[in-house]
Design a protein around this nucleic acid. Structure first.
Lengths: 95, 95
DNA sequence: TTTAAATATCTAAATATTTCGATGTTTTGA
DNA sequence: TCAAAACATCGAAATATTTAGATATTTAAA
């Protein structure tokens, strides 16, 4: 089934991507074959743990990332479905 | 020639699209065959003229829109090149 | 040339976002 | 059980964005 985003979702996704740290996080995780651990992501940035948590939450809430608990760890994967849907929405703007 | 966006550009474009008014503006203009006049865009929103000017400026600065002066009017067109480049960047995240 | 229309810019207030430190929760391992 | 690791949440300060009103600029039309 093909996901169609409404404008509220597109706004939220855009906002999530409109920050240099969050964009870098997406880039990093997208380069992985599978997932990336939360603490591993955090190590790449010189930000407080609570700040990283906040950024990651926004990406998850925008559904760009999927978070899975694995014991006391958290694994993030790219939500391909949403990325593709967002990409299609944008492509249609420039039709 | 295929435009490749750097991450600063992607950030700026994302930020520009992360607002409900600006997203609506993009949607409206993208539905046109050709261009849309600035004052025509403004009429669709219940915002002060200076506020509209500000929003449109951000879309132009993100290069999502191209502005052309036509006498004392302003014509906006979608920058297809940039929309496609941004769309491709996003698509690659979800690879 | 004077006036009015279309747009831009400046300033300031209101609001939202970012960031951190402190603290809370959950889970693992000693 | 107890301590530590991984993560979340809360509160507050710093910063950025949104918005409008006032004013400036440019151009067309009377």
């Amino acid at each position: 089934m093909i996901t169609e985003l409404n404008s509220k979702q597109v706004e939220k996704i855009s906002k999530a991507l409109g920050d240099p740290y969050r964009l870098q996080i997406m880039d990093m995780i997208s380069k992985r074959k599978d997932f990336m651990q939360c603490c591993e992501v955090s190590e790449c940035f010189n930000l407080a743990q609570s700040t990283m948590s906040h950024h990651l939450k926004q990406l998850v809430e925008a559904e760009l990332l999927v978070a899975e608990k694995e014991g006391r760890n958290l694994r993030f994967t790219i939500n391909r479905e949403i990325c593709e849907a967002y990409s299609r929405y944008i492509a249609r703007l420039g039709f």
